[in-house]
Design a binder for these strands. Sequence first.
DNA 1: CGGTCTCTCCAAAGCGCTTTGGGTTGGCGA
DNA 2: TCGCCAACCCAAAGCGCTTTGGAGAGACCG
Lengths: 344, 344
Amino acid sequence: MNLKQLSQSLGLSQTTVSRALNGYPEVREETRQRVVAAAAAANYTPNSRARRLATGRAMAIGHVMPLTGREEMVNPIFADFIAGAGEVYAREGYDLLLSMVPANGTEAAYRQMASNASVDGVMVQAPTLDDPRVPLLQELGLPFLVHGRTASPEAYSWLDVANVRAFRRATDFLLDLGHRKIALLNGQESLDFALRRRRGMEEALAERGLAPNPLWMRSDIMTEQYGYRTAGELLDSDTPPTAFLVSSIIPAIGVRRAVSERGLRTGRDISIVCHDDALSYLDNDGLNAPEGPAFTSTRSSIRAAGRRCAEILLDLIDNPDQPFVQELWETDLTLGRSTGPAPT
Amino acid sequence: MNLKQLSQSLGLSQTTVSRALNGYPEVREETRQRVVAAAAAANYTPNSRARRLATGRAMAIGHVMPLTGREEMVNPIFADFIAGAGEVYAREGYDLLLSMVPANGTEAAYRQMASNASVDGVMVQAPTLDDPRVPLLQELGLPFLVHGRTASPEAYSWLDVANVRAFRRATDFLLDLGHRKIALLNGQESLDFALRRRRGMEEALAERGLAPNPLWMRSDIMTEQYGYRTAGELLDSDTPPTAFLVSSIIPAIGVRRAVSERGLRTGRDISIVCHDDALSYLDNDGLNAPEGPAFTSTRSSIRAAGRRCAEILLDLIDNPDQPFVQELWETDLTLGRSTGPAPT
DNA sequence: CGGTCTCTCCAAAGCGCTTTGGGTTGGCGA
DNA sequence: TCGCCAACCCAAAGCGCTTTGGAGAGACCG
């Protein structure tokens, strides 16, 4: 069933039927009712391909997800982000076009999305300090929103978490507990957010006249293994730290495992503070329980970020001439059972 | 730059240019070269919207991902599956349309994909025993491939892991080690694969005249917390099991945590066998190391499954009249450090 | 009562591609 | 020389929608 058939069966023109279905005012309410009823009865939906061509809108948003590392890992954080964004897209009638490509292929992916006009806009995640995707998309004229920021975040729209403040706060918290030997298990420091978190820690240390110990400053893709191995190595070293600041709950789980395997107790012998993206399938155990969650963490829901990012992007597409939207989200420092006073 | 402009600039008709670019034989090789060069120079790509309308093909595959549980969790396994499938789609020029909807909204999502013809086929994941999506898609006439099976898997194409055999084998392995008190931490038993795994375990027990202890047979969404809490509860009970058979590496990590927190050692006091989907960011630590991986597991790469599923689906779309494709993958039983003889 | 609006509705022109159904040209055999 | 066949190329007709530019019919006004 297509528009032509439907309009013929109604004895109306395609124009009128189309307008009736799309809610234009030029059609009598009574006629609209009739059209809508007939469409429903015939189980008619406009062919999206034809509609897209006619309107010139793709009604789709592109997400390009880099596969990182040798293993071409898919960052599990992205799944929740997409779940949030997808909720908004669905509500607004947009499709989500997902492209998973090796990290070095992201530019080509965006370029293709632009040149064959298969999307109305794209989401950029996990930008590096000097991310080439930003100038690329500006050049292509494709609306985009960055989740995160680059070194010069003035001339585009973004939503980011206040990473410096978050980790500064977390470090202060550990310092206040008396910790002086604090390790940082950061994400890949080619990524902007990781650099900001490091900066937050360094600032907090510097403020008390402390310098970071290079041996304790680590950076890698945030897997459980990374946390486990690195923590194990540091704990077994001559100068073990008493606290770990970890960039994600996933490696934090690994740290906890390493601690536990050594007969130490998290929260007493070793303190852990991590960033918690509030991943749906890795909730910070006991978040709402009276005894508090497992991890003390800087918390910010990645899913909520996905939702908001989608809203902003769609808005950017609808109103291309508006000023840049730049949103900075604060994190909560959630007290959990993974921290305690520095052992004396 | 569109086809019309390009053809004018070349002094050729749209027909010829289109044919040249699409590799039809009616155009002289020399002309084709010229066209291709001009297209490249002008950075021309056919408008996908127009092409889709003209060809009647969406050049897109739909994946509908249910958000499960109260928290609307996104199953982290899906991310790797999609990464595998996406690889194939990209290679074949298909887009991946991702729709994440609450578990009860999947049917509507498929229905919409069919009615507005926005995809050429869909992937069905994690089917239940009597999954309504199968008859729905048959009725809609939308090509589909099921990853997994339903109770009557005759009349459609699917790819599945030999779950019964896998868990039978795993159970046998534990029985051979002398374990008699084996707990099953299964996935949601509304899902077909979980039922098959349970059956595998029960068959292995029955073969040795043993009956499963209902107290030890658990089933839920496979989170780390689920593993941790359930194992903790069982270990603290009057009749603690000596071995855990776990449906995914994620809850297995939780089990390990519970074991470790009680001062027990995994692989000596408590044995764990799990199914390992070879998730990229949760690799079974030390898989290639001489000491063996952390977990003894039935192993089957979900990403490879995604790749193969995509291949089959695209093939199904290209050749609609072929017989059903039904592929059953065997798993490997990978020996790791999480199992040992039953303590006496 | 003619002119001007406002309501409704319609025919037809795109959107940018693919594909059908020829047309033209030159070479070759008879 | 004529006819025929490849080899190349083209004009035009869709694909199924949206949207432009009216047109007809009443209603209202002076």
